[in-house]
Amino acid sequence: MKYLALLYDNEGSGPNPGTPEFGEMMAAYQAAGEVFEKDKVFVAGEALQPTNTATSIKVRNGKTETMDGPFAETKEQLGGFYMFECENIDAAIKYASLIPAAKTGTIEIRPIMDLSDLG
């Protein structure tokens, strides 16, 4: 099954680039990434620019409305994602808990819908 792991964390609470703490965080992400590669569960994964770069759009009556900012104001913001291909939710939980953001924020795991199951 495929799972999307959404990384929610308090923006700006992380270490600044150039500090030793930042180096440690990057090393931790790299170490997790190596496990994902080694176990062949990594499908995709990216970090996102902060929410002040976010734009939300909706189309109503054929008209596109564009707004500055994220869809919802929340305490923790979406900061990145991983997609895993693994056997079941227990495996997804195991890999998601290796993501460093799990220690400071929350990781939401969502199964990817298999469209061939519909109907």
């Binding site: 799972y3 056997e87 079941n88 939710i89 227990d90 195991k94 795991i109 199964p111 819908m113």
Partner: peptide, 14 residues
């Protein structure tokens, strides 16, 4: 079914 909760006894540190 949809979230893939396994039908098994957990292993290791779980």
């Amino acid at each position: 079914k949809q979230a893939g909760i396994p039908y098994s006894v957990p292993e290791g540190n779980q």
